[in-house]
Amino acid sequence: MRLDADEREFMCSGHAACPGCGAVIALRIFTKAMGENTILVIPASCTGVIVGVYPQSVMRIPVVHAPMPAGASVASGLRAALDMRGDTDTTVVAWAGDGGTFDIGFQALSGAVERNEDFIYVCYDNEAYMNTGIQRSSSTPYGAWTTTTPGQDWKRLRKKNIVEALVAHRIPYVATANIAFPEDLVRKVKKAKSIKGSKFLHIFASCPPGWRIPSEISVKTARMAVQANIFPLYEVEDGVRYTINYKGKQRPVQDYFEVQGRFSHLTAEDFEQIQKMVEEDWGLLQRKAGYQAADACIQSSSAQRAIKTNKVF
């Protein structure tokens, strides 16, 4: 595939990411889509380590490291400073992991997007605290092993639906993306860049060591999450206009789970249950996107209106 992105690299080689790291794939494509007028704010995360140890930096664009809860807030302040400096060309990006977004950074994120701060907040999601050694986060999916959900105590709770939480803030743009769909990612990045106010991109990024997968299937595994509707690709504008972006090949969830060591304890009954959960979520999303049931909804509401106004015919 040819990307509609900058030919230049904004990430150097020589970084310390694990082989096949999904976060780096995401960051590399993301920065190529963004171009040079970008500043990254990176709260504690794998990326915080990957971007380099003093005096080296992986990035050819500016990076401001931030404490783990502070991605959105540091970005807010930086944006304010640029505004005061009259720099309107630069886009401020907060680049955080799932822990820094779903958990410890959520307050700052919620605050910042409620203020509709003009930045792009990217959560690259590898579904656990990977940098600290694969501990469970509120992004860890149902069924997963982590070092803090070991053995038969695997996570029996759903993953937090961060996208819907952001949508609930009714910010101008929320989108999911996935490292296996770079063209879609680039399009969404460019779209986000063109919109003023708070933009949230949720990028699914595999973690070979944390997911217990061989590095070479890093992208393939991420793709399967989309194909199995576990991580649907969609975007929401102004908190209301839903568009589902992927309508390709479909897979049962088992395909996705089976290749990953973190799910190796799951049984056929578990897969069945997870399949149901996924279908429920998928159905919900489709209705929000205006498919089938939504039409019925519109009909019934117009019928109700008709009854209220006594205009039955």
Binding site: S73, V74, S76, G77, A80, A81, Q107
Partner: peptide
């Protein structure tokens, strides 16, 4: 005053925002 006032949601974010702003040179 010609200043941006950030009505943050906590003191942690408050100082974090200033860290961001000060890194931006203001």
């Amino acid at each position: 005053m010609d200043a941006r006032y950030l009505r943050v949601e906590s003191e942690h974010s408050c100082l974090a925002a200033l860290v961001g702003a000060a890194c931006g040179g203001v």
